[in-house]
Structures are given as structure tokens and as C-alpha cells.
Amino acid sequence: MSTLTATPETRGADPGRNVLEARNLVKSYGHVVALDGVDFELRAGEILAVVGDNGAGKSTLIKTLTGAVVPDSGEILLDGQPVHFKGPLDARHRGIEAVYQDLAVAPALDIPSNLFLGRELLSLGLLGSVFRRLDKRRMREEAERAMAELKFRLPSIASRVENLSGGQRQGVAVARAAVFARKLVIMDEPTAALGVRETGQVLELIRNIRDRGLPVVLISHNMPNVFELADRIFIMRLGRRAAVVSPKTHTMADVVAIMTGAVKVEAG
């Protein structure tokens, strides 16, 4: 199962097609309505930024899309087909991968081990089927190829992740998602814990992922980053979709105004 070199299924598909769609998502926590009837669509080949104030419901929205949270009501369509994720594994099996703010890596393990964590390759033949032996060499080679393909530079593929910089570590987590995602990658503030230069590395990586044909959903509080990267900007406010705008037609000030409710927009 050499997933690494598999072309994303979404590549070459007609641009503008909706890869992922959600309709009227509702999710409450007790009295708090985190999602209040949200529509969402992610198009093939785009980077969609999701912005909004603290508590606007961004993470909750994204969690319903990765199966981490089951919405109270509403429907989710993947490639036009209704899906019901009961957990993150369900979403992953359907080709959706997620990256989180905290570095979701095992620091004492090396880069290939982290890249293949939970999906390790076994040796061929009896060694693999009976003795369950890991194919470390193949994992290393595939990891090297994946990193080269994503143009992500690392000191040595055999480095332990703890010996990498913060940006490189998060790069490993992002690469893991990119390598195994067949439909799309979702990232919740992947650069929140990083410095300026390190953020740059990760943004570059995200762009390379999009250029390989995988659409990306990116939550970020950093407006300059959002404007640098996003094809469209999905603005949330108080658990609702306030607007979806293009960075070409709107300024940062416009977006902030919509986010904070200073400007009202009719159904974006």
C-alpha cells in the first residue's frame, strides 16, 4: 500500500467543483450554540481560509468535517455523496486528513516513523504477514520521496523529530496529512505555535500541497498569512457564516469588519 505516491483523487478534476460541502450544520454545547446553521463548501484545488473571532465556531466547524465532533443536525457531502462520520478514523478512511495547532508528533521517533505513525508499512512476504516486521527501509525511502515532492527540506530523514526546529516539526505533521490525504487537508491554526520564519516554511508547504492538487482548509488568526495564501476567505461570526470573500476583492480591514460585525453582509 504505497499511498505516498498516489495522486490525490481531486487532482485534475474540474476546478470549481465542490469537493466537500456542508448544509445547515448545527452543534450546541449545553446552552452554547457553537454552530448555528452553517453552510460550507470547499472547491477543488483551492486554499480556503476560515477566519473569525475567538469562539466564533471555527474549530467546531472543522471538527464536524473531520469526524472529531458529530453535529446535532445538518448534512455533509463528500464529492456530492452524503457522509456520516462517527469519528476521525471514518473521515480519514474517506481521504480527509487533519493537522492541529499542537505539534501532533512523537518527538523521540524519527521522521519516517512519525510520517507513518499508525500506518506503518510491513515487510513483504512472510516477514510481514507472519512476523509483522516493519519495513523501515521502505518507509525511509517513501518519506524521502514525499519530502522531496513537497519540496520540504530537512537536515536528515533519520533525525529524531525533537532535533528539528518547530517549523520543521510542524512540517512533518503537515506532510503526514498531505501524504495520506486523498481528498483534502484540514488545518486548525497550524502555525499558531511558530515563529515568523518557521511559519514561512509551513506556509510554503501548504502552497505546495495545493499545487499538487489537494484542496486545503486553513484556520488562521493571522490576516497577512490568510491574504498571502487563501483563494477564498470564509468568515464566521457567532456560530454563523458571515460571508465568503475573495482576497482580491476585499481588504484585510473589510474582513475584520465583517468578522467583528461592524459590517453586515447579505448571505456571502
Binding site: L89, L103, A104, A106, A108, L109, G118, L134
Partner: peptide, 24 residues
């Protein structure tokens, strides 16, 4: 050292949350 099972023991000891997120 040579099996998935062992690799997951290390991953859990290292970062249980990361292990959970990758589906272990």
C-alpha cells in the same frame, strides 16, 4: 523494535494525544 505494536508503545509514551490522533 521491529513491529508496529512496539512502535506504538513508543508513540504512546512519547505523546499519547498524537498517538490517538493518528488512530492508534
Amino acid at each position: 523494535n521491529e513491529t508496529r505494536w512496539g512502535r506504538h508503545v513508543y508513540a504512546i509514551g512519547n505523546n499519547p494525544e498524537a498517538a490517538r490522533l493518528v488512530g492508534i
